[in-house]
């Protein structure tokens, strides 16, 4: 009994580790069962990343892990040690919106806004890999991000407009 209880106690201990979120190293302590989504929202106060289906089906929780779009609801927080995590909070630089954010705002690509952080991060990874994607490529890249409001047309247009703006600036 005593040994069994000892094992239980050991089992229910938090993990303590260092994450790299939006370019900053942060020490954080959390129970091992927490997903990256839960750690971001509950332990780091970064609530920009949205909590949708929790089962990998909606894309609301998409963040970049080592530069690739992944679903924070299906990544264990403790598997992120030593990897770079980017969230929507890291997009704007010193009060200036990222071209994707500006285009989303200007072109009505966000209505309720719930899908927007996931869309923005997924689009950011696409444009880093392909600065001039076709409409088809954009559609394919965001096909795992569901939007219940816009009908997608404005989102695709905004990503195209942001890509143009970023190419002109480069």
């Amino acid at each position: 009994m005593g040994a069994a209880r000892g094992r239980e106690a050991l089992l229910r201990r938090n993990v303590q580790l260092r994450l790299h979120v939006n370019g900053e190293a942060v020490e954080v302590s959390f129970p091992p069962y927490k997903t990256l989504l839960e750690v971001l929202r509950e332990d780091l106060g970064l609530t920009g990343t949205k909590h949708g289906c929790e089962l990998g089906e909606c894309g609301a929780c998409a963040v970049l892990v080592d530069g690739e779009p992944q679903l924070a609801c299906l990544v264990l927080g403790l598997e992120c040690e030593g990897r770079s995590v980017e969230t929507v909070e890291g997009l704007a630089q010193g009060g200036t919106l990222h071209p994707l954010q500006a285009a989303f705002a200007d072109l009505g690509a966000a209505q309720c806004g719930y899908c927007t952080p996931g869309m923005l991060m997924t689009a950011k990874a696409l444009l880093e890999r392909e600065p001039a994607p076709s409409r088809e490529r954009i559609r394919e890249a965001i096909s795992g991000n569901l939007c219940r409001c816009t009908g997608y047309a404005q989102i695709v247009e905004a990503i195209e407009a942001a890509a143009r703006a970023m190419r002109e600036r480069a």
């Binding site: 992944q70 679903l71 997924t122 795992g144």
Partner: peptide, 9 residues
């Protein structure tokens, strides 16, 4: 299989 995000994982 699944989506871009899930294929990355």
């Amino acid at each position: 299989v699944a989506t871009v995000h899930l294929r990355n994982m």
